[in-house]
Design a protein around this nucleic acid. Structure first.
Lengths: 151, 151
DNA sequence: GGCTAATAAGCTGTAAAAAA
DNA sequence: TTTTTTACAGCTTATTAGCC
């Protein structure tokens, strides 16, 4: 989607109502050439439209889902210590929170649901790798064994 | 997103240029209130806009990604015998085609890339289940064995 | 009702931003 | 630079739901 060398300001990807910056994975909508997040789109559903207010003209008056390629660079969330503490605490109790628990985490941290999900996935993966590594080391420390299977 | 009881024609979810019907999972764009598929959106990127031509007014002048809930009912592709033949033939040679091969299948069948991917996924899964089942049966037919592991 | 396409959630490997 | 950590794409498995 970088066709025709059109480029645009990253910071212009904001909901024109609440001002929240839209990142890849977010759903957005267009109404009279104004970007809206889904929440505000619903709120404004039957309100009269106001005049367009776009900075980035050559840019996405379009697009369904924001993706990395369209944004140019991947957006990497930097988690605060407080957010990490919340996530780690939850993880230590339950490494696989259900939908309801995740919803609570979204509220507590203010993070995007997708970020929560990915964080837990990565965390589980890291833990698994680590446990496999230490298991191998344990195995190496022991005497060499053998295995027989009769069938 | 069914708020405010707005409903709309399923058949109106079409690219206003190529006429292709947009299904859940598809990305679409809005340009001057006309639905466009991504391909045509790129093509029209610097062309002047034409007047709006919407059937379904109360409807999705919005939405980023089409989802099942928004469409109301799930869209199920019905594969023709010819398409199935193509897919099965490819599968018998290589059950895990790479991106290039899938691209060729898209051209040969006219199916959406996502449909191709899902078909292969389901096919692999089905085959695996079947092989496990027959293996168990084989096992049951043989004499009972035992297994010893020394470490 | 059976078959199977579509969806959802988790896992794996890898890309890429941030940190060390 | 190298390491760590977040994001993503494709996969597996289980479940849901549309046609015949």
């Amino acid at each position: 989607m970088r066709a025709r060398d059109s480029s645009y300001h990253t910071r212009c990807f904001r909901c024109s109502v609440c001002g929240r910056q839209l990142v890849p994975g977010d759903e957005f909508t267009l109404r009279d050439k104004q970007l809206l997040c889904v929440a505000d789109c619903v709120l404004l559903m039957d309100k009269p439209s106001s005049p367009p207010q776009f900075h980035c003209v050559g840019a996405p008056q379009m697009m369904g889902v924001l993706k990395q390629a369209e944004r140019g660079t991947r957006v990497r969330t930097v988690l605060s210590e407080k957010q990490l503490l919340t996530l780690r605490t939850c993880y230590s109790v339950n490494p696989r929170p259900d939908a309801l628990m995740k919803e609570q985490l979204v509220e507590m941290t203010g993070l995007h649901p997708r970020v929560i999900r990915v964080w837990f996935q990565n965390k589980r993966c890291k833990d698994k790798k680590k446990s496999i590594l230490t298991k191998q080391q344990n195995h190496n420390n022991k005497t060499v064994g053998f295995s027989v299977n009769f069938f």
